[in-house]
Design a protein around this nucleic acid. Sequence first.
DNA 1: GTGGTCTAGACCACC
DNA 2: GTGGTCTAGACCACG
Lengths: 129, 129, 129, 129
Amino acid sequence: MFFHVDPHNGLPIYDQIARQIKFAVADGILKTRELIPSVRELARELAINPNTIARAYRQLQDDRVLEPVRGAGLEVASGAAERCRNERVKLIRVRLRQVLSEAKHSRLDARELRELVEKELSAIERDRS
Amino acid sequence: MFFHVDPHNGLPIYDQIARQIKFAVADGILKTRELIPSVRELARELAINPNTIARAYRQLQDDRVLEPVRGAGLEVASGAAERCRNERVKLIRVRLRQVLSEAKHSRLDARELRELVEKELSAIERDRS
Amino acid sequence: MFFHVDPHNGLPIYDQIARQIKFAVADGILKTRELIPSVRELARELAINPNTIARAYRQLQDDRVLEPVRGAGLEVASGAAERCRNERVKLIRVRLRQVLSEAKHSRLDARELRELVEKELSAIERDRS
Amino acid sequence: MFFHVDPHNGLPIYDQIARQIKFAVADGILKTRELIPSVRELARELAINPNTIARAYRQLQDDRVLEPVRGAGLEVASGAAERCRNERVKLIRVRLRQVLSEAKHSRLDARELRELVEKELSAIERDRS
DNA sequence: GTGGTCTAGACCACC
DNA sequence: GTGGTCTAGACCACG
């Protein structure tokens, strides 16, 4: 398990963990019916209070990403991968809309805005190739 | 002064106020050397805690958008319009980069990402025309 | 606020509180935009740890029953009454189905089951009138 | 022994086992003085921790459904069939009363409640025929 | 061993 | 004053 937490990230720790697990599920790194690390184990590994981990896991159960197996731990729920992928796209779309609408609200010149977007987009594509 | 504050907005109120003043300065609605409303006056007008207004003004002074005038109050600093416009662009650029890099990190399909951006961009342009 | 908590109820305390608030919202006892008691206040009143109250309130926010108002507290969200009423009916329906299906699974005699239901139903109606 | 255990069922495993044994006794599938499988045997067969089986058996002894036979194991107690049938009815009655009283407490419309019950009841009857 | 609940107390941002 | 986050440690049911 390669989780990484930054307490100065702005995002709450439990959120960072939940998010990383969702990504791992979406990418198939964590598979359906696979047991995830126990609360205490991950807490030890990340040097974080078990309650904080437990809160992340609880949130993931609310989102139907994890399911309890009595006495054994928590496993990835069936259908979770699909849900996580969908949520990811939805999140990106919402964020993108926010930024662009903020840009519009800022009366940013349309041409300049498009240039900005294109520059960042092609930078991303270069990184990928 | 036509400010508008929404306590359900998620953004802190002092931030909403500071932001609106910056926009007004960037757009030339508030001009250099013009006095802005006093803390108490604006607080009364918006039915908001004066501490909150004061905090917004303090932040604007830190950003060199406002300057104190002894005995008179706060006025728009010289060069503030330019700075506000720049900051606006910089803010958008940073936010945009975040979203796009997050999209990349989400292994979102490159083509789909570009489509998403284009769709939102053209929607914005339609709204404008 | 007339909340009542029983630590030996089987149900977790935070759940009992959340449930009672949902009922109060569904019945119009708590109205939209009304501020609910603060975490600390309710904790003091019920002699319960503030964290437990906070958890109930957090859950209610997840269910879109409560909304934060910065610096002021938590208020009943708009549309919450409708949602709470719906959820209540749905809960009852699910519970009822469980019991009846359990009865079926127990090979309980059909006639006897119907008698049981009728007896309880008319008892309820007597109580009401 | 055709027992069937589902770890995702919500119900504790020992409870599922105890319940199935009670049903088998109530239905005469397990008869008075009949020896039931040993803890180890059933544990092996169901691939379950022996402690869990032992707990189910202990609970069944507390409920006077099973009786120890020195050196032989556990057998169905005399009168157990009768007790199991009664308990089944009593359990259903209690659960039913809970649900209906909860419905009442929810100020559910009396007519709607009766309709709900009738719908579920007739659905059950259709399933049976 | 597992997760779940609860208590106690600290610190933060916001109003 | 408000809610939100985090730590620390206790106790429980379950396997």
